[in-house]
Amino acid sequence: MIEPSENTGAKQTLQCTLNGSPVEMDVQLSKRLLHILRDDLGLTGTKRSCEIGRCGACMVLVDGKPVNSCLTMAYQCEGKSITTIEGISGDGIDPIQQAFLAEGGYQCGYCTPGMVISVIALLHENASPSEDEISEALSGNLCRCTGYGGIIRAVKSAIATRKME
């Protein structure tokens, strides 16, 4: 495991899996995952917003768990599996994304990647969550446009679709 050095400007090699592919890159260990994804790797689906872990726009999965990439340092990613919104659907559209489209679970779309990531994590842990459990799982994601009605409908629709498959 890489440990942060006293000289936080020092670069070291970071090895992890990103969206299913191995990645090895020299980074400052004190650099935030959000900036590595967006600035260094061009994965702009992960949104930059509050940068203090309150809005969820930068949510990614690290070893299957939702985390705010704005609070995650490079050294914390060593050996981990990271999944961004770009990595969830492969060649097509994920059924959760489709449900957000069908149910009006977005307006401006800025929060949508973080919301989708949180829903994926929820449904991985609990295939049939209650509305309270859905709300709790999304409590770290803020939306300023929709009022959450469309988002909750989208999650329920995705759950129903999964049950029919």
Rank of each mutant, 00 (worst) to 15 (best):
L123S: 03
C143P: 06
A127S: 14
S21K: 14
G20S: 04
N141K: 05
S139M: 08
R38Y: 08
T72F: 09
R144D: 05
G147V: 09
L61E: 09
G140H: 07
Y148V: 04
L122R: 05
A57I: 05
T83V: 15
T44Q: 14
L71P: 06
C77E: 10
G20C: 04
I93R: 08
M164V: 12
E136M: 07
E125N: 10
M164N: 13
L138D: 11
M1W: 00
S69L: 08
M25S: 02
E78L: 08
S130K: 03
K47F: 08
E24Y: 00
M73C: 07
E131I: 11
K163S: 13
I2D: 00
M25K: 09
A99L: 03
C111H: 01
L123I: 03
G64S: 13
G87R: 12
R153E: 14
V116K: 01
T13C: 02
S130Y: 04
A158T: 10
V23W: 09
T46M: 13
I120S: 04
V116H: 01
I2F: 00
S130A: 02
N19T: 01
E3K: 06
A10S: 06
N7A: 05
T72G: 04
M115S: 01
T83L: 12
C55N: 12
T13F: 03
A10I: 02
E125K: 14
E133F: 06
T8F: 03
K163G: 05
A102N: 11
I52F: 14
I159A: 02
K80M: 14
D132V: 05
L33C: 08
G147E: 07
G109C: 03
I52R: 15
L142R: 05
K163W: 01
L18Y: 06
A160Y: 03
I82G: 12
L14Q: 03
D39Q: 13
V119Q: 04
C145A: 07
G87K: 12
V60G: 12
T8S: 02
D40F: 10
K80C: 15
T44P: 12
A137M: 09
R54A: 15
T161F: 07
I52Y: 14
R144P: 05
I88K: 04
I134M: 08
V60R: 09
E78T: 10
G90D: 11
Q15N: 11
M25R: 10
S49F: 14
A74C: 15
T46Y: 14
A154T: 09
E78D: 15
S118T: 02
E78A: 15
M25I: 14
Y148P: 02
D26W: 01
I52M: 15
L14S: 03
Q76S: 07
E103M: 06
C108F: 01
V60T: 14
S21C: 01
L34D: 10
M25P: 00
G42M: 13
S130G: 02
E51A: 13
V27G: 06
G109L: 03
S69N: 08
G90L: 13
E3S: 04
I120F: 03
Q28L: 03
E133D: 09
V155M: 08
V27H: 04
S21L: 06
T8C: 00
N7L: 01
S5N: 00
Y106A: 11
L101G: 00
C70V: 06
I152K: 04
T13M: 05
T8W: 02
E86I: 13
A102W: 00
E78M: 15
G147N: 06
S21E: 14
S128M: 09
S135F: 00
G53V: 12
